[in-house]
Design a protein around this nucleic acid. Structure first.
Lengths: 130, 130
DNA sequence: ACAATATATTCCTATATGGGAATGTGTCAA
DNA sequence: TTGACACATTCCCATATAGGAATATATTGT
């Protein structure tokens, strides 16, 4: 199986950075495609395609105004993401506390041991990725 | 250009539903891979691969315990997503107000016009997709 | 040293992507 | 009707997936 379609849900649609920019831009006011093109410096067909994806997952609305199409962010569709991330809020608060505690104990001089590999994080295995 | 790598940032990593499940599961406690396999009913190699992605973007931590690897969600890495979605909170509040107003006006009987296509949303153009 | 356990990696393939270029479609104005 | 303008769609392609199957690696107990 390949990766899920970008149009399968808001999570996938929003994974693309340009689409996030567009959503930011269209949050305040509705705007015609041409203004998005000019403001974000992206080719027009590219913008149209991104808007199509956003429209399919309900992240934007459109209405026609003469020959222009006015798009606007539908903030409501972002709520599910907000709510999912929110369930982790209490955890990072805890972690912050733990970090603080460790920092406080740090004033206590006792360990000068080597580096700690007990909890690897990203760049340990980055190896290659340029 | 193809889609950005799943390992390019938290947004992309989290787009995959199974990876979100894993993050939920590992938020409370650290767990060995085997338990994830059993609990979420996913093939072991699949779980390992998802964990690799999550590790590369810093969404989980690991530490070894004998022959087991204990993974745990690093909630802190989810904050950027939370913060991005948060910038839209005020907008959906506004929209909710507008919806409420409309609902209140609804008690006023006056319009029986046809359907409104002025603001298309998803399923209007869904056409085919299965 | 060896078998058993736990996890990671590799190989395979169908599928969807995003950008660029070219072209299609719809709307207005004269 | 025709031309100009504003968008949308199509075609092409290099690239990266997620899952399944098979295999590799690491650690422990005997």
């Amino acid at each position: 199986m390949a990766r899920a379609a970008t149009t399968s849900d808001a999570f996938n649609a929003v994974a693309e950075p340009r689409r996030r920019e567009i959503l930011n831009y269209l949050a305040l006011q509705e705007r015609p495609v041409g203004e998005i093109v000019d403001s974000l410096r992206v080719a027009q067909p590219s913008v149209s395609k991104h808007l199509r994806v956003l429209l399919e997952v309900g992240l934007v609305n459109v209405r026609r105004d003469g020959r222009r199409m006015l798009y606007r962010t539908n903030a409501e569709a972002i709520r599910p993401l907000h709510e999912w991330t929110e369930t982790f809020e209490r955890y990072w608060r805890h972690q912050l506390n733990r970090v603080k505690e460790r920092a406080e104990r740090k004033s206590n001089p006792s360990n000068d041991a080597g580096p700690d590999f007990s909890s690897r994080r990203k760049n340990d295995l980055d190896g290659n990725k340029n």
